[in-house]
Design a binder for these strands. Structure first.
Lengths: 98, 98
DNA sequence: TCAACTGTTCGATTTGATTCGAACCGTAAC
DNA sequence: GTTACGGTTCGAATCAAATCGAACAGTTGA
């Protein structure tokens, strides 16, 4: 049931993470998820066009920042907190804290 | 003698730091500086055009990632390691380690 | 089956960053 | 003085990312 399309923990690169986080919308996604564990796509970026939002999910997924779980027609996103913390300790906290 | 044109420690934002680090050349600068304390501009990016290099110094400076010291006509760059570590612990280490 | 809903993909446009050469400024050496 | 050097600034060109609408695929419920 885990629709895991992103890199394995060991394959997450700091370059991809930095690139993923260097965008206001994606930063907002990460901060929203950090406060809420797991959320549906539309709950995260309700004001953003579907295609644009989908583009950002992809960037975050491929960078290894988020993982997704599909439940029917809904998609739930969740931070890969453990993976990120173990691989780049402090980075996620710094980003969320601001 | 400190030609400090960047933000004060408390004014360094994670957004600016992420944007500064999201570039291959600037990442290379940070990693080079991390291994060498203080370096002249041309020692860091000898193969890059002056104007391009200068552009990247500016981005790194304004983000608060590096500080500079002018000695005659030479400019020496140095990581603001203490400032970054105190403000965003773990981030610089993660970036340098890769 | 059919309509409604969630999210993806495609293609085109727009936007912003990067890049470079040329001119420039300040310093150093002669 | 002048010439050489290190770095900045300016403007234009280039290139990559973001954005959007439209068409699409899969799921749900009537």
């Amino acid at each position: 049931m885990e629709t895991e399309e992103g890199p394995a923990r060991g394959d997450i690169t700091i370059e991809a993470v930095l690139a993923a986080l260097d965008h206001p919308l994606r930063l907002r996604v990460v901060r929203t998820l950090a406060a809420a564990e797991e959320l549906n796509c539309q709950e995260i970026l309700p004001d953003i066009t579907k295609s644009t939002a989908s583009h950002h999910w992809k960037v975050l997924r491929e960078a290894g920042v988020v993982e997704q779980r599909r439940e029917g027609r809904y998609l739930y996103l969740r931070l890969r907190r453990e993976d990120l913390d173990s691989r780049f300790p402090g980075v996620l906290d710094a980003v969320v804290r601001g």
